[in-house]
Design a protein around this nucleic acid. Structure first.
Lengths: 221, 221
DNA sequence: GAAAAACAATAGTAATGCTATCGTTATTGC
DNA sequence: GCAATAACGATAGCATTACTATTGTTTTTC
């Protein structure tokens, strides 16, 4: 738990990085480095150098960089969930809530000053660029039991419940929102790097419109 | 080019594996091993051992395992494209063609005896488990210029054209089919490993119905 | 039958992904 | 306030990985 009450499975770290200076420096520097180098080129040695500590220092908090990435991505989903809960209180219709949820998934977010060691905008870029790597692994079943993907599943469940308020007979709410959440990430990536896989080159608002259109039409009876 | 006229960018290999015995053995054994071990655990040394040759033998055909994976996945898209073209000739309405395309994306396919060194069903499993790794890289822009993703873009374009026959005013055909193609893969993965991100635990037909519903509703005006 | 290409075999190298040890410095409990 | 404990920094070590290079042998091609 931290300032924002984001819960992350304790299986996702050896020692909670949120509770110490050194841990928060690991988070801060590994977010910056992962964004710069990408997951494959990141090593704990480089993180250690950047934060002026040692490799073994990082290993005391995370077993390996895969666990670190999983932690960061779960942190992001947890944070998004909190944001959504806040914003939903200001809205009434489930349609409006879904629209707002899609905006939060895609549009860049402002930095939260209460958490200075995590740059949410950079973290969002990491999620876009790396998120499927946390589950596309031979260990997925084991890691799933350990709660590695709770953040993702939780946000999918929340949005599914909203969808059923619009159309209680819609048969695929989880598939729909897993697809929407994934598309929210991959369309951002495609718009930037593989524009022929997208119609929204440039504007993120175009992606929001596409996803909203797809969601509401799917739920229409 | 091979028996089926699948074209793959010559940047995707050092020496065309389709043209020699050794090359085809590399493809055959690396498909089996990648399926068994996963991309991360695969090494050229293991492939060499399996095919009774040497590491340097594999390096003569592919610069590294990332290029090998990209080759395999492009081969798959090319092959699917050929399949679709064949089946479309038997159908008239664009709706029927789209439905059939979605079935081909999801349902297991039969082995093509003309290509004994490639097991299409195993290759399909590899695509489900590994496909985003080929573009989620810091080299994506450079590799894109080299034609690393032509197979994916081509199939997306073909389906987009079909969609516009149904609704010429639909504004997001490429985004739609990039999303459908991705969801076809990820829903198979989720149904097996992360069932709370899917409503189709078990039957692939359920996934087909979900994707068809989403596609046709999206195109509805 | 010569030249060129493909292949097998082996060696070597820098980097990676850890694990282990050990002395020093903080923190905590009593 | 002091002992016990945990955290940290520094360093070493090791098996594996991801290549690159070399050299001799076989096969193909012209």
């Amino acid at each position: 738990m931290n300032a924002l009450n984001i819960t992350i499975s304790s299986k996702l770290y050896s020692k909670n990085p949120d509770e110490t200076e050194l841990g928060r420096r690991i988070l801060s520097k590994s977010i910056a480095l992962m964004d710069e180098l990408g997951f494959e080129q990141l090593t704990f040695k480089k993180v250690a150098r950047e934060m002026v500590s040692t490799e073994s220092g990082v290993y005391r908090y995370f077993q390996n960089k895969h666990q670190l990435l999983t932690y960061l991505i779960n942190w992001y989903w947890g944070w998004l969930e909190v944001k959504m809960a806040q914003e939903f209180m200001l809205l009434n219709s489930p349609q409006d809530k879904l629209k707002r949820a899609i905006e939060l998934l895609v549009l860049p977010m402002e930095q939260d000053e209460r958490i200075p060691h995590i740059d949410e905008r950079v973290l969002q870029r990491i999620v876009v660029a790396e998120y499927p790597k946390i589950y596309l692994t031979k260990d997925v079943d084991h890691e799933n039991k350990e709660g590695y993907f709770l953040g993702y599943k939780q946000i999918c469940e929340t949005l599914s419940q909203l969808a059923l308020q619009i159309n209680p007979n819609y048969p695929y709410p989880h598939s729909l929102f897993a697809t929407i959440i994934e598309a929210a990430q991959s369309q951002q990536f495609f718009a930037e790097h593989l524009p022929r896989l997208s119609d929204s080159s440039g504007s993120k608002n175009e992606i929001v419109r596409f996803l909203t259109d797809m969601t509401l039409k799917s739920l229409h009876h």
